Computed example of a mutant assay.
Amino acid sequence: MDRPLFERDPSSKERKTINPLLKLALELGPLMVFFFANARGESLIESYPALSVFGGPIFLATGLFMIATAIALTLSWILTRTLPIMPLVSGVVVFIFGALTLWLQNDTFIKMKPTIVNMLFAGVLLGGLLFGKSLLGYVFDSAFRLDAEGWRKLTLRWGVFFVFLAIVNEIVWRSFSTDFWVAFKVWGIMPITIAFTMSQMPMIMRHTLPEKDGSAAE
């Protein structure tokens, strides 16, 4: 009998795991730093004049965002000895576009970062489907065991969702103030993503593979 598509690698059991709340803190921490630094940028610069080297609040927020992202990725590596692909890719883009933002003193680069990241993920997922590959299985293989149809549906839906997020980011940063964009990035995108994720659970449950007898006996 053929092995199910994206069956979990036995070696994955050896991977270190961390508390879900700590994992969430590592993922949301840099965003919270970004929001706080932008909102309190002027008072922070007044209290600590050395921070004026970054420029205005959005540039200070960008610099601290880069530092917080580096710290989060480092802690994730220390605790698990792995770096999740999506935070890693997002972190690389943060460093590139953040550096351009600070160097050129132009916040357009950091505002375009979510668009670039989301379109990159969408391109990889939807492009993989064109070649018959449900690549999302490689990202979530340790969380779900789905049949081939389930992975295909989930990959397609996430690919389309990433395109949606990219479009929303472009509309928001081009149409509203920087403060509004920062707030929406933290308090808007996350609830939208959580709602979308929860909406996929019925489909995931329908396509979840039954546990093997051998694994159940372990």
Rank of each mutant, 00 (worst) to 15 (best):
K133L: 08
A99L: 12
L120T: 08
N38S: 10
L26H: 10
G63V: 03
L24F: 08
I78K: 15
S52K: 14
E27A: 08
T115D: 05
L129P: 13
T74H: 10
F131I: 09
L126G: 04
A68N: 07
G128F: 13
L75S: 04
T69N: 15
L88Y: 13
N118C: 00
M112A: 05
I71F: 10
T82P: 10
L129E: 03
G123C: 08
L135D: 00
G41E: 01
V53T: 15
L51E: 04
F140E: 06
G91K: 09
A68G: 12
V33I: 02
P87I: 00
F109T: 02
Y138D: 02
L100V: 08
L79S: 05
G137R: 05
F35Q: 02
F144H: 09
G137W: 12
F97M: 07
P114G: 05
A70G: 14
A68F: 11
A68M: 07
F109V: 06
N106E: 08
I85M: 02
F121S: 03
Q105G: 08
G41D: 01
F54T: 00
L120G: 03
V92P: 12
L31W: 15
T80E: 08
A70T: 06
L64P: 07
R40Q: 09
K133P: 10
S43F: 12
T101P: 14
P87M: 01
F144Y: 13
T69L: 09
F65A: 03
I67A: 15
L79I: 01
L51P: 06
G132V: 15
A122G: 09
Y138F: 07
F121L: 01
N38R: 15
S52C: 10
G137N: 07
V93P: 06
G137M: 10
V93R: 00
T74G: 11
R81K: 15
L135V: 05
S142R: 12
T108I: 12
I110F: 14
S134W: 09
L44C: 02
L104R: 15
R145P: 07
F34C: 01
L83G: 01
L79K: 12
F131Q: 06
V53C: 11
Y48T: 07
L31P: 11
I45E: 04
G29R: 07
N38E: 11
G56E: 05
F54S: 04
G132M: 09
G55K: 02
E46T: 00
F35R: 07
A39F: 14
L130K: 15
L126N: 08
P30W: 08
G63N: 05
T74W: 14
G91M: 04
